[in-house]
Every structure is written in C-alpha cells, then in structure tokens.
Design a protein around this nucleic acid. Structure first.
Lengths: 341, 341
DNA sequence: ATAATCTCGGAAAACGTATTCCATCACCTA
DNA sequence: TAGGTGATGGAATACGTTTTCCGAGATTAT
C-alpha cells in the first residue's frame, strides 16, 4: 500500500513526509550536522529512510555544501603495474577517509592531460592527485589550470615529480639510480647501455642521469631513448643489438616494464638475459620477481606513494611539503656477479 | 580592474553578467541545448566564459538535469593485471563517450561490495559496471541494492558473470578451460592438479569444472583450493608439493597470477617449471609472456571486455543481453610437448 | 494587410539538499 | 516570579545549474 514513485529514488522530502517531520529535521538526522535532534524523531527518520531505501543524492549535497567527497586521480596508463599500484594505494587511502576516487588516464599525452584537468575542475573534486605528469614550468597551460583549481579551494598533490609548488610524494630517483649504478660497478660491470624514456619525463631523466653519474667512468655508456613502455624497451633493445656494440655488459632500463621488454627482445634475438647480457630495471613491480632471470631493480614503494599522496591532500599541511619515501636496490639474477673479465 | 571573487570559481551568473545577458542565455550558449541562441550573444558569452576561466559546476548540472555523466566501476583489486586491463578498457570507452569513471575496490569482500554499491547509489552514476563480483542469487542484499538502482533509472553491466539479469560481457570459461584441457591431453599430459580459487567465485568454479570435464579421465586430477591471488597460487603449490604427489605432470591454475605464484613456489622448492612440472594458467596477462618459461594459458580479451561493458550500458539495448567474447588457447613453454611416458 | 508561425531573450521555477533564521518550549537562576 | 538560557523543530532561502513559460519581434502565408 506504500505508493513509491516508480522511476526515481526517494528523496529527503519523501523520507521527511514518511516520518512526519520537516525536511530540515530529516536532513539533520541523516548526516553529521552540528545540530542535535531528539531521540524520538531521530528514530522515526531513520526508520523511514530504511523503509524507503533512501540514499542521499550526492550531487545535490555537493551543490548545497559547495564541496564534494571525491578525489580525482590522473595516471598515464592504468594497465601499467606502476600506476595501478599507485592507484591501489590511493583508493585505499581515499576509501578509508570516506572519499570516492574518480580516475582519468592521459595515455601520456600532455594535451589530454590538460583537457582532463580542465574538465575535472568542473567536478570540483576535493583534491586532484597527479601521478606521473609532465608539467613543465609555471607558465604552461596545465600549471594555469591547476592554479585556478587551487584558487577555488582545491588541493593538489603530485606523485614523483618534486620541485612543483604542490604537496609531493616522491622517491629520490637520481640518488637511487646512482646507488644502483654503484652496486653494479661493485659487481664488476664496466660497460653500460641506458634505455631511457622521453626526455620531458622528469622521472626518466632523473633516473638516467643519476645512473650515469653513479658510474665510475660515465663516458662508458651509450644511451638510447624510447617509449616508457614495454614496447619501448623492446624497440630500444632491438636497436641496441642492431648497432652491434658487443662490449656492453649491462643494460639499465629506467623502469621495469622497459627492462622486461628489453629482456624479451634479447630472447627474440636468441640471447639469454643475465648470461649473455645483464639487465637492470627500476620500480620493482611484481613481475620483476617472476621473470627469469629475476630482475635486478630498485624497489619503489608504489602503493605507499598513492597512500601518502592522499594523506597529503587530506591533512592540508604545508602547501608544498615534500614526502620522500625510501628505496632499496635489489640485486637479482639478471645481473649476476661478474668475476674476472 | 576586473573584480574576481577570490576563493571560488566563477559561476554561470558571473559569465552572464560579464556578457550582459541572462543566465538562461548563458546556459544555452555554453552547452548543447535544443534552443538556439543568436550568433552575436553566443560570441559574447563564449568570450566572457573564456575570460573568466569558467568551468561549469557538474554537481549543480547533475542535480538540475537529474542525471550524471559518470559511470562507476567496481573491481576486486586494481593492482591485479586482470582488473587493471578491464579498467583500462572501461576508461577508454567511457572517456570516448565523455563520461568520467569513478572506481571502487572491494578487496574481494562481499560486505564491502554491498557497502560500495549502496553509497554508489548516492552518486547516481549513469551506470554501474561490476567486474568480477560474486552476486549470489536474486535474494541477497546486493541484488536488492542493484534492483533499487535500476528502478531509479540506472544501468547495470556485469563482466564475467553470465546468468544475472543484467547486461553481461563474458567469455565461456567452462568451454575454454575444456579446450585447454583437451589441448594438454593432446600434448601427452595425463595426470593433473588444479589450483582453484574460492568456490563462491563463479569464474573460478567454471574454469576448474570446465577443465576437469575436458580431461579424458576426469578422475585423475587432484584439486586444491586457495586464494585467487599470486600468494594463493604460491600457497596451493606449496601444499601440493608437501603432499608428495610425484605422478602429477601438469598443474592448472585457474588464473595467471595464481599460476605465476605456483611457478615461484616451484622455483623456491628447487624445481624447474616446465621441465620438472608443467604449468598452465588462464587470462594471458602480459606477465604470462615474460615469465620463463612462458606460460601456457587461455587468452581472454580483458581490455575489450571493459570496453564492451561500457558499450552495453550506453547502447541501452536489451536488459540482459549477453556479449560473448572469444578466447584462444595459447600453448607456450611451460607445457612442453610430452613425448613418451 | 492581417493572421499565423517561428526565433530568440529573459524571468522564474525546479532539481534535492544544507543551513540560516525564527519560534516555541522547558528548564534554570536569582 | 521574572528573566535568561539552551534545546529543538520548521519555514524559508541558498547552492549553481537547467528548463519551462511567456512575451516580443521578425518572418511567412493567405
């Protein structure tokens, strides 16, 4: 005998009517308001809400309150384990705080990135987390969009790109790559190739420069640029093999997916990674343990990075606080100890 | 000399005022309305919007229109390559249609799943896509929530769980697993172990039952249940080894991450996957190609599944249309041809 | 020339909620 | 007992849009 309107959700007014109270009281009862409501009416409202299957319209709440309960996460490619791990951490942190995460992927296109941030402004998310962006300087369009967003009260956090005027969580890519280089030199390696990503990718640049700086004689390395993907690593390694530089002992790819692509290229050429040519990567994605030989790399706490980025925007601390997370060099079978020459 | 209110975005009224027109005209000018507005005023409004850096408040739009431009995607674990690939496809499809994707992860907890759908209803998303859920029957709470959501005009699509009264995109897990079993039998294998996930996971059940049914003598297989994760695969394989069933020739894990975990357990025990014990998985995640030996598996078009799920909810075709996507058995080095006994 | 239609602009109402005022009532203090 | 104070409920308004409705010109058909 209850007459529910078909085709639409029950509204706060419906609940109020059912409970025999005003909309204001219903509103106060159903969410954390400063105002108190009598136990009697509270029970009435809760019962009515339950009976009608009421779910507050979050859009309406957002316009009334002027703020939303969502945070936007921007990644290059969600299928890339690096980003999906960061996303997992971010989602975990956000859900713990009662926020929902909206996600957008840039496909590594700066134009797309700009477009995304621009439409995102319309969503008025509580915060925007940029994972692996390539914001240039203060003068480009993206920086402008972000400034506008911040001016309107939004929070911004950046993952893995220190030096921008936002809360940042990062690892010291340069130093870690240097540590890796030093460890490999200590393992007996002398002649290197570096497979790096596009030059405008801060992460790629830091890692490749840090690695070169960590070598005893930096001159001894050939550098090849390629896409920041497994395909890119494959292509770069193929090119390297084509050049016929037989004296190279170890190939360092600036991230694990590239390194794994490079290993595949080696196998395609009939070579055995680790034996014929050593390989090292960066990130320690879970696949790094599973490939054979297991990949020497630098462990980056990706999940923690996502989590801390959320902390950062929620804590609302200093504007451009930088959280540095520790890394570990992990040597595995893809770079066996090199005895003798 | 322009006086912009600090601390908040320009509103439609601001734009209208700046352009010297009414709010109604500004609204009509700035979005695809049925009504036309004169070229002159249109230019004025566009110029004003540009000047002020106007971005429409999507929450307000949503409450006014009564519908949002978002679709919600629910996955078990975004760091799992199976789900992150589906997510990549879904995001691609959604962005192409001008929708934003909000994401939630259940961590494989039915309680969490219910909670998520319930809060999601508040967002009034255009559609909800459930990837890898475990909705039981029509009587449980989750089904109830979904019914309420649909009654209010929302669309639901399900990935990989046919038989529910929603648009579905799936692969025929049972048949594909049977095909894989047949191919392995043809390769000379006779004695099998199956590492499967929790029994209430439809996907796991279909794959393990299909595999057993595809064997010549189904009796010849031992079945071990474990978590649907790499850790689960590792644990299951460790248990299997502990049982000392030396006559087993091939271990089939119901998904690739479990299979990869199983391979790791083999190596931990000093055995060589593929030589001492063959392994096969299911899904063909990209890591399957990169492990050594490369993993025999069934290719599932995960990205396409995400994409088609979005198509399904956008097309608005038949309520419970099922889209079947093709699979391919791919035999790799982890299950070498078995010659003689 | 007049009626009928079309085009376009703006005022105002609507969407579903939060919140600001009032008003009422009970209780406490002096 | 009078005035003050605190708790509680409701009416009304605000949030930033979209959309309905109305009216005024302009255009077309007769």
């Amino acid at each position: 005998m209850t007459e529910e309107r078909i085709g639409s959700s029950p509204t706060l007014r419906d609940v109020a009517a059912e409970a025999g109270v005003s909309a204001a009281t219903a509103s106060r009862a159903l969410n954390g308001s400063t105002r108190t409501v009598s136990a009697e009416k509270l029970a009435l409202v809760l019962r009515a809400a339950e009976k009608l299957g009421y779910a507050p319209n979050l859009s309406a709440q957002a316009t009334a309150r002027g703020s939303t309960k969502t945070v936007a996460l921007i990644v290059h490619d969600i299928a890339d384990p690096y980003f999906s791990s960061i996303a997992a951490g971010a989602i975990e942190g956000a859900e713990a705080a009662g926020l929902t995460v909206t996600m957008a992927v840039t496909d590594r296109s700066p134009a797309r990135e700009l477009e995304i941030v621009s439409t995102l402004r319309g969503h008025r998310p509580h915060a925007i987390v940029l994972a692996g962006s390539r914001i240039g300087d203060e003068h480009d369009a993206l920086a402008g969009e972000l400034r506008a967003y911040e001016a309107a009260g939004g929070r911004v956090a950046v993952v893995s790109q220190p030096g921008l005027p936002y809360g940042t969580v990062a690892v010291d890519n340069r130093r870690a790559a240097g540590d890796l280089a030093a460890a490999l030199v200590a393992h007996g390696y002398r002649r290197f190739a570096v497979l790096r990503g596009p030059d405008d990718l801060r992460t790629s640049r830091d890692r490749s420069e840090g690695f070169l700086a960590g070598l005893a004689q930096p001159g001894n390395a050939v550098v090849i640029e390629a896409g920041f993907t497994e395909e890119g690593g494959h292509a770069a390694m193929t090119e390297l093999l084509g050049r016929g530089l037989d004296d190279i002992e170890l190939v360092f790819a600036v991230n694990d997916v590239m390194a794994i692509g490079a290993m595949r290229a080696l196998r395609d050429a009939g070579l055995v990674p680790g034996r014929d040519l050593a390989v090292a990567g960066f990130d320690d994605i879970s696949a790094a343990t599973d490939v054979a030989p297991a990949l020497t790399t630098v462990r980056v706490p990706m999940r923690a990075m996502g989590l801390r980025a959320i902390d950062l925007v929620l804590a609302g601390g200093a504007e451009n606080e930088v959280v540095w997370l520790p890394t570990t060099v992990v040597l595995r079978d893809s770079s066996p100890l090199r005895t003798g020459r």
